[in-house]
Write a protein that binds this DNA or RNA. Structure first.
Lengths: 207, 207, 207, 207
DNA sequence: CATGAATGAGCTTTCATTCAT
DNA sequence: CATGAATGAAAGCTCATTCAT
């Protein structure tokens, strides 16, 4: 389904859609308002995107690639595995906070919208998260032997995601300094390099 | 304006609304589909709730109270601060995973819909998070002196939230064991009791 | 259809309905808002009135009777036919301006609402206008011989109605003094006692 | 936001709306019934009018312009101020009786619906009434010196309005000949050129 | 490559009214 | 004498989408 057409209009549509999304939320992400802001007709959008879902998916793709770029840049700048891990975390947080529109559509959309997201894109997108796994392994070295690094890397990601998404959603108490929270989140990632804590006994009895 | 009315119908409406929300997402949370499933007319819903927003707020309130109950139970069961902290984390994760409909509506709805959530309820809801602060302080004791516990407690919460929300949304790779991830999330909370890691020098140079 | 029931509630309903009518207009004259203000249920209104139309008709009847009372009082106070005519006009204007809710529902409602107004009430209501005819005849005496007094009396009424209704509707330029306009309207009624003007010739040629 | 679009449909909508208004009253002036009669969907109406109010305002504008045209034609045809005044009155009455749908929407709609009528249009509309003032002044000449012509011109208008509106509303006794009433109304306007009557003494004592 | 016109389904909400209690 | 619960219809309006041009 090659769809070259006027690339400028395509860009404009994507940009407006992103802005509307963050400013007014998903329910307001309607074709006609987008068209009005872009300065074309709603019909024109359909020349560039098969459907509203396709438009959203294009935004997701763009966002994933942008994130990938930034994570790779972080990797390249790091001297040691530990340094790279820290940079990865910081880059992830920065990306989310500086591109909330992308972030929201990439990671905060309801699954009912994601179901239609082509599986192949999905897989490609997930690759971004492998960086965490890879650097965690490198940083731990032989100490990684008896740890489930895939799960640990996932945890790093989900933790960062929680911080980003709640900050974006404005759910964090205004008394909390955003930069401070970011620093703590980065530190938490580095903490995961030290050996896991012993769970209290009460826990062993549980479940 | 009497508002108690038939409590069974009220319950049914809330239950269906919760289910629709998780199954089909917010945009599908419409009055008529809910009514159809409940087996009443859309008009009847308005006998029990002033508006769609009021219905959603009622769900949030219910969820917040349920969460509060579970967190308090966890606290009560813990022997030491460290134990209580670990139980709090586990209870939070369990609540989210076992009540995804509540969790989604409580913490994952777009803020544009949340603005009208009455400020007072909001404050009451946030109190649930104070437990983390309180137990963190108790567990650290004098070591808490030069740490920003409010921010650290918030980080605990956001990290747990990230794990819960991505699990709920089905965004976690199927190869990752859900229980394993939960255990790691709990362990991460306990790790926050140890002294913070030294950030690599590369960081000091940054911005 | 005797409908005694609680007369206090009946009164309250009528009073609130009247107020709502003038404050928010006919489209807002809904049963439930009335009930809410009265402090009863919508159902209760139906114990006192068969329908919304019946409620409106009751208001019209009340208004007509009130108007009749005031016109009769004006008549009684007048010494001469000319004086009585002038008092009638003034009383009519005063009634409308002081009871805009009644006036609006009596004379400004769309005919589609009036169709259902029982014919008998209608006739009774119209009797109020006979006063104008009667006093006009008395004031003119023998001079009335070759004039169509029924039509002239009707004109007096329609002219007064125009002034009242536009004042009530707020359609009169704010720069026009309300009292001045009323005085002019009264004077216009008295002017109708003098012989009719000769129409310019151009008129004879018309149509 | 291009708005010319298919002008035939626009016309058809306006025409049907006008007819529905007079036949069934304002509450029946709903988008879907109009659409049904026009033979399009309710949505299509929104291609031509921003809202129901905008549709109504368009009708008012049309009516005001039509009235203006007819009043200006009357003025042009009159030889003397007195003649012109008489023609103005007759033209006003004719307009109302021949275009009851326009007249009703222009002057008989409840103010609560009128508030949103753009102020600028409103002012423009009111200019139609200046013709009465202007010709009254011309006809009276120096005799106008100690009279409030603005108020008197307003009274002419309100009186004519009363006659038109009650005739339109079918509130006039069937025994009254419509043409006769119109002639009397015109005559009443001319009578206003003679000096004002002395009010009876009883009036001086009043209030 | 783009538009204007149109559609049908759906939205939240309010309406007048009824009926068993 | 009055209520709570419910209903079906309809309101104004917006949605994603299509199609002829």
């Amino acid at each position: 389904m090659p769809r070259p057409t006027n690339p400028k209009l395509r860009r404009a549509i994507l940009d407006v859609a992103r802005r509307v999304l963050i400013e007014q939320g998903y329910p307001a992400l309607a074709m006609r308002p987008i068209a009005r802001e872009v300065g074309c007709t709603a019909t024109s959008i359909y020349l560039h995107f098969d459907s509203k879902d396709a438009l959203i998916h294009a935004l997701i793709d763009e966002g994933m690639e942008l994130l990938g770029r930034e994570l790779r840049a972080a990797l390249a700048a790091g001297a040691t595995p530990r340094d790279r891990l820290q940079r990865l975390a910081r880059a992830y947080l920065s990306f989310g906070l500086e591109n909330p529109e992308y972030y929201e559509i990439m990671f905060m959309l309801h699954p009912s919208r994601m179901e239609r997201y082509p599986a192949e894109n999905y897989r490609r997108a997930r690759r971004n998260l492998d960086f965490f796994h890879q650097e965690l392994a490198a940083a731990l070295g032989p100490a990684a032997a008896d740890r489930d690094l895939r799960a640990e890397a996932t945890l790093l990601w989900t933790s960062l995601h929680g911080t980003v998404s709640l900050l974006i959603a404005g759910r964090i108490d205004a008394a909390i300094d955003r930069d401070k929270l970011v620093e703590l989140a980065v530190a938490q990632v580095l903490r995961s390099l030290s050996p896991p804590p012993l769970l209290p006994e009460s826990d062993a009895a549980r479940n």
